[in-house]
């Protein structure tokens, strides 16, 4: 290690000597139950201009087919561990791992998720089964995500409590966007330009 380490630590200790410590009070809302979380989640995702469909379990496969057909997506990446009933007829497996260029050439990707947040309309992926490594949901231009109702939590504290920081996490709230040009919102810069969500009750 460099001399920088000891120098910085010594400077810090000299700087804070005698300063009082501060106690943290967490008087904000932590975990909570939220009736109507599914509806709120769908509404908040739609606020980000992502297409949302709320369906019954038995409608899931047909809805996936409709969604993919609607985008003309035929070559769709399917991460390991995706439920078979969600898998389209011509899946592109990530095994052996697809190169970035190959990912750039597919029509889209379909995944599940780890957790979803109602208040903020957020989907969190943790690279677990049915989600795959991070590049799979980044390079293709179209991401279809299937969220089960029991994965939807009320708010950010509930999600943080459920997630494992040792896994690489991607929190997704709507499609990629920029407001850098005169504050006009433009969807889709580098991430998938189209995000669609299917919520399974």
């Amino acid at each position: 290690m460099s001399g920088g380490r000891e120098l910085i630590l010594a400077r810090i200790r000299a700087a804070v000597t005698g300063a009082p410590d501060v106690e943290v009070t967490r008087a904000y809302r932590t975990t909570r139950d939220l009736p109507g979380a599914v509806e709120l989640f769908a509404e908040r995702v739609a606020d980000y201009r992502a297409a949302v469909r709320v369906v019954a379990e038995e409608e899931t496969a047909a809805t996936i087919t409709t969604a993919l057909a609607g985008r003309g997506a035929v070559r769709v990446v399917v991460p390991a561990g995706l439920p078979p009933e969600w898998t389209p007829p011509e899946p592109v497996a990530d095994d052996p791992p697809l190169s970035a260029a190959e990912l750039d050439a597919v029509d889209g990707v379909i995944t599940g998720c780890a957790v979803a947040i109602a208040e903020t309309g957020t989907i969190v992926l943790d690279a677990g089964p049915g989600q795959g490594r991070r590049a799979l949901t980044l390079v293709p231009d179209y991401h279809l995500c299937v969220v089960r109702a029991d994965q939807i939590v009320a708010d950010v504290p509930d999600a943080v409590g459920r997630l494992d920081p040792a896994r690489p996490l991607t929190w997704i709230s709507g499609p990629s966007a920029t407001s850098d040009i005169e504050l006009n919102r433009v969807e889709g810069v580098h991430g998938p330009r189209v995000l669609e969500v299917i919520v399974v009750r």
Binding site: Y48, I117, G121, R134, A166, L169, W171, S173, G174, G191
Partner: peptide, 10 residues
């Protein structure tokens, strides 16, 4: 309410 992407890694 939330920015489009948040990444965390360890």
């Amino acid at each position: 309410r939330m920015n489009p992407y948040t990444s965390t890694w360890t």
